[in-house]
């Protein structure tokens, strides 16, 4: 197993009354989630909370029952089994949030973003819906490994020159979210984990105020807990217009090659049995 060190911090910010962000962080489960909820009358809080609870509950069942949980049918062949689990948990959460939204008038139209990272024996999976970024810091470079599902980002992809035509209100207009529709499509990325990799998951309350290069500077030189504090403080100093949530995960140690092999063999054996 990969050894990880992580930290998380959330702050209501300076302008909002409540905190609609939710997060989850567990170094044993090796699961990390940030959700940025939306909808009036505390519905945003409900949505992001429901998502986090559903995702972590689903992923926990796999670990505790050693995989004897029925896999969802709509699995994606391009992803590993572990990655499919995380995607499945997000799809399940979508149905849960959507049903809640339909159950009460005050919840109508509520939704949330999700950005989740989970680790396997030697790799990690990043899944997202919405605009909460997941950054990867490797080799002293920073890049966003999540996909922004906003009108602005998608427009920019189709027409790189046309960005200026859209008003500012489109920068956070989501084209997809968890809970707003019966089904949703998540984007997923799988990467091999390397020692000293750092992942930063945040809500836009941080990423709107702090540039990627600044994230790199602040995170690369300090421990996760200290770096979380610096990033949140910087976002607050610059106005704190929105709720701010930051989760930072650092790869401390990779397991030896020998353990990988045994782990893999036993897994394949299990799979073979299941098929019979």
């Amino acid at each position: 197993m990969i050894t990880l060190e992580s930290a998380a911090l959330t702050d209501v910010g300076k302008k909002r009354k409540g905190n609609e962000d939710s997060f989850f962080r567990d170094d044993d489960l090796q699961l990390y989630v940030v959700a940025d909820g939306m909808g009036g009358h505390q519905a945003g809080e409900v949505a992001s909370n429901l998502l986090v609870e559903t995702v972590q509950g689903y992923m926990r069942r796999f670990q505790e029952e050693e995989g004897d949980v029925d896999e969802l049918e709509d699995s994606d062949d391009s992803l590993s089994q572990e990655a499919n689990r995380l995607v499945s948990s997000v799809y399940l959460a979508n149905r849960v949030v959507n049903q809640f939204a339909l159950s009460r008038d005050t919840y109508t139209g509520m939704g949330t973003t999700v950005s989740a990272v989970s680790f396997t024996e030697d790799s990690f999976v990043a899944v997202n819906v919405g605009d909460s970024p997941i950054f990867l810091i490797r080799d002293n470079k920073i890049q966003v490994i999540s996909v922004f599902h906003t009108v602005e980002a998608e427009q920019a992809l189709l027409d790189p020159e046309g960005k200026s035509k859209l008003g500012k209100q489109f920068s956070h207009m989501l084209t997809r979210a968890i809970g707003t529709k019966e089904s949703v499509e998540a984007d997923a990325t799988e990467l091999i984990a390397k020692k000293d990799d750092i992942l930063v998951i945040s809500s836009d309350g941080m990423s709107d105020k702090v540039k990627a290069e600044e994230v790199l500077d602040l995170v690369a030189k300090s421990k996760p807990d200290k770096a979380c504090r610096s990033l949140v403080n910087l976002a607050l100093d610059r106005g704190g217009d929105d709720n701010i949530t930051v989760v930072i995960i650092k790869v401390k140690k990779l397991k030896s090659t020998k353990t990988t092999k045994t782990a893999k063999t036993s897994k394949t054996a299990k799979k073979g049995k299941k098929k019979k």
Binding site: D122, S123, Q143, V144, I145, S146, V147, D187, T189, E190, L191, I192, K194, T257, T260, K261
Partner: peptide
Amino acid sequence: QTAFTISKLPDGYYLS
């Protein structure tokens, strides 16, 4: 044993 990997990221394929 595993020499390198290729991952599909939003902006392209990366070799590690």
